[in-house]
């Protein structure tokens, strides 16, 4: 005998917090690039290599680099807000 459907469903709404990605600029020429270094070893080398390639290929206006205190700690709100304010596109290092 199967139970009737009078049980509760404690599922959190995993879809409700979907974040809409920011609009992508059509070109990188004259844009400000942000680099977020998570402080994992050699992440800085990878980020700098990416920045150099984008500079050469597209003519970026400026590169702004920021670095987290520790790879396993979330970036402070103020740092994220600064990047959101100052840059047009950003590359963030994850994992490692």
């Amino acid at each position: 005998m199967s139970e009737s459907a009078d049980f509760m469903d404690p599922s959190a709404d995993h879809g409700a917090h979907a974040i809409v990605p920011a609009r992508r600029p059509g070109t990188l020429a004259g844009k400000v690039l942000g680099l977020l270094d998570n402080s994992k070893e050699q992440g800085d080398i990878i980020l700098e290599t990416i920045a150099a390639a984008l500079r050469e290929r597209y003519g970026l206006a400026r590169v702004l680099t920021r670095r987290k205190d520790h790879y396993s700690k979330q970036a402070p709100e103020a740092l994220i807000e600064e990047l959101a304010r100052e840059v047009d596109v950003a590359v963030a290092a994850l994992g490692g």
Binding site: S2, E3, S4, D6, F7, M8, S11, A12, H14
Partner: peptide
């Protein structure tokens, strides 16, 4: 009737083992 055991197995957040259906 919905089988509550299978209902919770179908959740993305299941740990892979059966749960006691909450009532």
């Amino acid at each position: 009737a919905v089988d509550p055991v299978e209902f919770f197995f179908g959740k993305e957040w299941s740990d892979g083992l059966p749960v006691v259906p909450p009532t």
